[in-house]
Computed example of a mutant assay.
Amino acid sequence: MLVTAGLFIAGLVGLVAGAELLVRGASKLALSFGLSPLVVGLTVVAFGTSAPEVAVSVGAALQGQADLAVGNVVGSNIFNVLFILGVAALITPLVVDRQLIRQEVPIMIGVSVLLLVMALDGRLGLGDAALLLALQVGYTVFLVRQSRAQTAQAAAQTDDLPAAAAPQDWDAKLPAQFVLIVGGLVLLVAGSQALLTAAVTVAKSLGVSDLVIGLTIVAAGTSLPEVATSVMAAIRGQRDIAVGNVVGSNVFNILGCLGLAGLASGSGLPVPPAAMAFDLWVMVAVALACLPVFVSGREIARWEGGLFVAYYAAYVTWLVLQAQQHSAAQPFSAAMLGFVAPLTVVTLMVVLIKPAATRR
């Protein structure tokens, strides 16, 4: 038990330190390369913080554990939106960039629906995996080119260049920025693995099933770098990185992570029937829920963050009740579908319509 507690503490320290280094290095790198902090969050930070998901899903695919490979990605995407954005918004309301509303969130919704469609036949084949990975490469190239073009256009209009780090700052040089990013990623991955090992050990000792562990503890554990990075970015005022990290990670988890895992398997990944029946639909619904929340006032308010966290708690509660075949599972599900979810939809519609009416 002492070893488990030690792993937990060491992992927590690694996450906090790694997030601080990564956010600082990424924000400086954005200025050096003429990229916006949003695009750095969508690419460099998102890819780096998704490294644990890649490691777990590819490793699971190589070992023939398709349930874990798919469940990890689906569970991580649900966790990223509901828990990470929720906690970050509770710390400070997150202003949402227009590009996220107009482009990135629709892309996240689109790839979520694409995964659902691909999974309808019960399998992600090698062709599906190759297509997902090709889309990831194309999306990344598009983002970088778009950002550099926008930066050049803005510089031409103002006859000035974006402000870079002061020359006297030690992290103004590219080598120092890469050291910060790489060092932060190493600490994040190591810290998340330590925390994940401790959590799984405790869960196993309590008799929690592998399915629930995969959808909750493994998914949350591999998303801990995103938690640390987005929370630290929110605290430091780098809100574009905080939100962009989550959206970028969700897109990368589906396109890059599942694409690599599917190819690594050599024969594709069978989709668990339970995930097809429930969790994939929840993932798509969560992605769709981002749009009205982001559009209303172009920010994620504290109450919306609290709503996200509450829904994640409800999702985990349902999973545990269902896995244990508890008698409360059915009434709980009926209450969520019949009362809480419709009430939330009505509330969001009122919030969305009210600003529009005010503008008239």
Rank of each mutant, 00 (worst) to 15 (best):
L2G: 05
R24C: 04
V141G: 12
V87P: 08
A163F: 09
V182L: 14
G256D: 09
A130F: 05
T222S: 09
L35R: 11
I91V: 15
Q136M: 15
L82G: 07
L188A: 09
G64T: 07
Q150E: 13
V212N: 06
L291T: 13
L35T: 08
V309W: 11
C290K: 04
A156D: 12
A357V: 14
V212H: 04
I254P: 01
V284D: 13
T92D: 07
G244T: 13
W170R: 11
V81N: 11
I235P: 00
L85P: 07
G183K: 02
V113N: 01
L62C: 03
V189R: 13
A198D: 03
D67E: 15
G110D: 05
S327H: 14
A154C: 06
R24W: 03
Y139H: 12
L348D: 06
L94K: 03
V251H: 03
L114N: 00
E53C: 12
A203M: 10
V45Y: 01
L100T: 10
R24P: 01
V44E: 00
G237Y: 12
N72F: 06
G25C: 04
P175L: 08
V144G: 02
G214S: 13
A166I: 00
M232G: 00
G125D: 15
A154M: 13
F339K: 07
A30H: 01
Q150G: 03
S209A: 13
A51V: 13
Q99H: 15
F8C: 05
A357S: 14
A323Q: 13
V282Y: 10
V13D: 10
A356K: 04
T158G: 07
A203Q: 09
S249D: 03
I235C: 02
I254W: 03
R302S: 01
S76I: 11
G64E: 05
R145C: 05
A152D: 15
L187M: 14
V73A: 11
V81R: 02
A89C: 14
V320K: 05
D169G: 01
L143G: 04
V346L: 14
F308K: 00
M232R: 06
A26E: 00
S76R: 14
L143F: 10
G305I: 04
V56W: 12
S32K: 08
L161Q: 12
M283Y: 10
I78R: 07
T358K: 14
L185T: 04
P52I: 07
A119W: 06
A287T: 11
Y311W: 15
V346D: 13
L135R: 09
E53H: 13
A156W: 09
A199G: 05
V95S: 14
G110E: 07
G266T: 11
Q157C: 06
A328L: 15
